[in-house]
Computed example of a mutant assay.
Amino acid sequence: MSPAENHRNRAAAFGGLVAGVTDWSAPTPVAGWTARDVLTHLVSWPAAFLASAGIDLPPVPSEPVAAWTSHAARLQALFDDSPDLVISGTPMGPQPVAELLDQIYTGDVFLHSWDLALASGQLPPLDEETSAMMLAGMTTIEPMLRDSGQYGPAVHVGADRSAVDRLIGFIGRDPDWTPS
C-alpha cells in the first residue's frame, strides 16, 4: 500500500472514531490525557513538525469533528499532491514528505486510534497484521524510542496475547485498561 493509501485508510478509521465520541473530556489510556487531548496531539504535532521544515498548513477549526476532517484533508493533500517533495531541516535529514509522514505520523494515528476508541467506548480498529509488523519494527529501535520520551516503560504482556495487546503494552499502555 502506498503512503497516500495508508494515510487515507488510517485517517478514515480515526475519523469514524472521532465522529463517535460523545464526551471529549473522557479519560484515555494515556495517563492524564482526555479524548480531546488525543485529537489535539494528532492535529498539532504534524503541523508544528512540518512548519519546522518550511511547510505551513492552514489552521483547523476548533470543533473536534471539523478539526479532524480539515486536518486529515490537508495532510492527505500532501500525500496525494506532493509525494516526491523532499523536506529537510528535520532530525531525520532530507526525505520525501510522503515517506516521512508515513513512517512517523500515520503509525501514530494507528496507535492513538486505540486510545480514542477505548476512551469513547468504541471498538479499536487495530488489526493483528499491522500490529505485529509495527511491533517487530519498533522492537528493533526500542532504546531510541524510549530515550525520545515519546513512549513510557513497556507494560508486560504475555507472549500468548494478541499482537495488538503486545503492541499496546510495548508502547506503555495497559491492554486491559478500562475507564474508571
Rank of each mutant, 00 (worst) to 15 (best):
S2W: 06
S2Q: 12
S2D: 13
A4C: 07
N6M: 08
N6Y: 12
R8Y: 02
N9F: 03
R10V: 09
A12S: 11
A19M: 01
G20S: 05
V21H: 02
A26S: 10
A26K: 02
P27L: 04
T28Y: 01
T28S: 14
G32A: 08
A35V: 03
A35E: 01
T40A: 08
H41C: 04
L42I: 08
W45D: 10
W45F: 15
F49P: 02
A53C: 15
G54E: 03
D56R: 13
L57V: 08
P58V: 09
P58G: 11
E63N: 02
P64H: 09
V65G: 04
W68N: 02
W68G: 01
T69Q: 14
S70F: 05
H71D: 03
A72S: 15
R74S: 15
Q76R: 10
L78Q: 01
F79K: 00
F79S: 01
F79I: 06
D80R: 08
D81I: 03
S88V: 07
G89W: 07
G89Q: 09
T90Q: 05
P91E: 11
G93V: 11
P94C: 08
Q95H: 12
A98I: 09
E99V: 11
D102A: 15
Q103S: 10
Q103M: 10
Q103L: 13
I104P: 01
T106C: 03
G107A: 04
G107C: 02
H112E: 03
S113G: 15
S113N: 11
S113M: 06
S113K: 02
W114P: 00
A119W: 00
G121K: 10
Q122F: 03
Q122K: 10
P124S: 13
P124E: 14
P125K: 02
L126S: 07
D127I: 10
D127N: 14
M133F: 14
M133Q: 13
L135M: 12
A136S: 13
A136H: 14
T139I: 11
T140K: 15
E142D: 13
P143S: 06
L145W: 07
L145K: 07
R146P: 00
R146S: 02
S148G: 08
S148E: 08
Q150G: 12
Q150I: 06
G152S: 10
P153W: 00
A154R: 15
V157K: 00
A159F: 05
R161G: 12
R161L: 13
S162K: 05
D165M: 09
D165L: 09
R166P: 03
R166F: 11
L167I: 04
L167H: 01
L167T: 01
I168E: 04
G169A: 12
I171C: 07
P175I: 00
D176A: 14
W177Q: 03
W177C: 09
T178D: 12
P179L: 13
P179V: 15
